[in-house]
Amino acid sequence: MLSIKDLYASVEGNQILKGLSLSVKAGEVHAIMGPNGSGKSTLSKVVAGHPQYAVDSGSIDLEIAGKMTSLIGMEPDERAREGLFLAFQYPVEIPGVPTSEFLRSSYNAVCRHHGLEEMDPIDFDGFLREKMKVLEMDDKYIDRAVNVDFSGGEKKRNEILQMAVLNPRLAVLDETDSGLDVDSMKIVAHGVNTLRSKRNAMVVITHYQRLLNYIKPDIVHVLHQGRIIKTAGPELALEVETRGYDWLIK
């Protein structure tokens, strides 16, 4: 599904990723852990195609129509229409644009790309309300402007709602747990778990182990100074929880 090889990437001239490799197969959930400044968020932005992040060398390939295809040089929206999704650590506010209108525009953009029928506002409204139930979101969000006057927890739920609407093949969740209380985290994790399937894959980026109690990863990676320094099963996350990162770093 996703293959990253020997990736070097920079933001504003500072090289953050230094030889990162990662391979994700359909049906898998990967957790990427690491101390602050290890390059976790940079990885998510580079994969999604943020214009301020530059790939210096290496490759990022995504399976598109059964063929591994390079994402480098593709616009963020092209990547999104091919089934890549990034849940933002800091979701962005868009004043004056109702959430429902935004989501329907996105949903239809993806449909158009794949030659599928677009949804009219009435059908979409029903579709959206179903998805919101899973995330225990109030109907009032539908008409509110995207992320404006949303609490931290509401913004994160809104990210997972967008993921549920767009139903991506590869989702990257960037510190979705930060700023969430335990109850919200359970709801968000439940939302994510209902989206897990054999045909899609997820990369869950987190600083702490606690989210992984609710979203069980198949594989856990530890990132440090822009490269993956350890890869193991779910037990690695628990070990990090008790021992911290120091034993891995030195």
């Binding site: 999604a48 301020q52 929206d77 999704f85 962005v92 868009i94 004043p95 644009v97 996105s106």
Partner: peptide
């Protein structure tokens, strides 16, 4: 307020083209 690259990147990462993204932000504002 400011329209910025983060807003446009956010909307683009949801499948909208750059032009559609700018249009959505401006539409919302006006």
């Amino acid at each position: 307020s400011k329209i910025n690259t983060e807003q446009i990147f956010y909307l683009q990462s949801r499948g909208l083209t750059k032009e559609e993204s700018i249009s959505l932000v401006i539409n919302g504002f006006c």
